[in-house]
Structures are given as C-alpha cells and as structure tokens.
Amino acid sequence: MSLANVASPLTPPKVGLRLQKQFSWVRAREAGVRAVLVSCASLSLITTLAIVYMFFTEAVYAVAPGSTAFFQDVSLWDFLTDTEWSPQFADKHFGILPLLCGTFVIAGIGSLIGLPIGLAAAIYLSEYAKPRFRRAMKPVLEVLAGIPSVVYGYFALVFVTPYVLRPIFQSLLHIDVDIFNAMSAGVVLGVMIIPTVCSLSEDALRAVPRGLREAGYALGSTKYDVSLKVVVPAALSGIVASFLLAISRAIGETMAVSIAAGQMPRLSLNPFRSMETMTAYIVNISLGDTPAGTIEYKSLYAVGFTLFLITLGMNVLAQRVMKRFREVYE
C-alpha cells in the first residue's frame, strides 16, 4: 500500500494546484544556521574519533608506510608483564607495571583520604548543616576545586613533605622520607578529589525524599541512624558513581603527581619513596627533545592509550552504576 493512496490532509493533492515550498531568503538562512549548528555539535564526535585514530595508528597499527606502531615493535605480553620501565636507557625495557603501580599507589592513598572525608562532608552538608552554613561552605569547595594542580604540587613539595610527613614519619617513626615521595602526592590528590566527591554525593543524598527520613524517625531512629542507615543506602548509586569519577580523576591527574612524586619508575608499595605515574611519564618524555618516530616517542602513545582506556572504563562504569542502580522516587 503506497502512502499516496491514503487520503490524508498532510499529503498534497495529486491533481490540480500543487503546493510547493517557495524559495525565500529566510528559509535559506534557517537551513544554513541549522547546518552550521550541526557541524558544531559534530566536532565533539570528531574529537573522540581523532583521539581513537591517533592512539590506534601510533600504538597499535601504523598506517603510514615505512613506520611501525609501538605494539608492532614491543609485544603486548612484554608490555603487560615486564617489571621494568626503562625506555631511555641503553637496555630498554617496556613493562607498564611500575607505572601502573605508581599510579595506583598514589591514587589509592588519595582515595583513602579523599573519599571518606568527601562523603562525610557531603553527609554533614546535606543532613546536619543549617542552610546558611551550607551556602557559605559551597563556594569554599568550589574554590578548592578551582585551584590549579601545579599549585597542589607545589604545596606537596614545599609544605606537606617537610612540615607534615617528615616530622611524623621520619622524626617519630624513623622511616626515611624522600623529598619526592608518593605519600605527599597522594595526600594532595586526596584534597583535590574532596570537592568532586562532596558535591556529587551531596546531590545524591539530597535527592532522597523527606518521607524516607521521617519514616525512619517515626520508628525511633536517631539522626545518626537515619543518616547512615536510611539516607546513605538510598543514595548509594550516586555515591558510588561519585567515588568512581573521583578515582578516575585521581588516576588522570598529572601536574601535582609529577611534581610531588618524582620521576622514578619503581615497582614497590613503599609510599615514602619516589615513584612515577603514567601521567608523569607522559609529560616527562615530552619535556626532553625526543624525536618523533623513535621508540621512546611511541611509548608515549602506548602509555597514553592505557591511561585513556582505564579512565574511560571507570567513567563508563560510573554512568552504568548511576543508571542501573538508581532508586527512583516519586
């Protein structure tokens, strides 16, 4: 059955007067504006495609004739299992493990500090604080979030290590603390992720309807019971998502860790020594004049690709958690 057979006011009549869109400059402009706007919106897609194309051609499979990509020179197995990372030495090793170790030790310390403090602050702001206190505190958190990471790196190097870590660990506990150490980087990273955790978790906590809290009080709960056993579980999906986003940010953080943690790829769990993260390696290789096409240069893309995949995975997971386990209240 063709559409023309159906008598509809929308289809033009077959015989007689034929209605046609007349050309007018106004219509042309409308179409032109629309085309421009669509191309603006497509740019973000092009960015993503460019990132993927770049990593693919430089790390996985080279398209240009005569050049090879990183994983065509170094096997994926060596990359993932070798325990040494020494691309600038004569005896080159490309094992990502020391860099992964540095990244996760520092991000782990940051999470241990930042996640509980951020969540507790969110609970206080959403459940306990008076509205005036909350209105005063929010801009402070925004300022904390807006401080550049170079400044946090400086703070770790000039304040945290000499005035916080060394008195506690070196003078009291007699553990050697290097001037560049993973601990100070982790501490400032923890401070950096507090605003993220706090503001996202607070949104989730405040979305829990009042009725749930009142039901808790009606059963004889104290405020502590209501906050921790009713509101937090009800907002758990949002809280977990905020944690994942914060950890992903901690993993991708660059300047603070490259200033505070140093440039020593090391496969160890001692946080008082210097360590190198993936991000720190990436900026350090770009500081030296490494010519394009060498294996050191290509290692940049392999490490960048690993970092990209890890953070992308965590972000996608966070979105999934948000969507899947969201409790919807009327």
Partner: peptide, 30 residues
C-alpha cells in the same frame, strides 16, 4: 550519541588532550 560522547570526553584526562594537541596541531599527523 553526542550526549554520551560529551560525558565521556569530560572525563578524559587533560594530559590525553595534550597528546592529541601534540599529534594533531603541533605535528598535524606528520
């Protein structure tokens, strides 16, 4: 598609944008 893409791009570490800038603008893919 664009919305999902935007929220993922917002989570990409800034150093990855740096690599993109180095490849696409400084070297223009050679």
């Amino acid at each position: 598609l664009i919305q999902i893409n935007l929220s993922n791009l917002a989570g990409v570490p800034s150093v990855v944008y740096g690599i993109l800038g180095l490849t696409a603008f400084v070297r223009m893919f050679g």
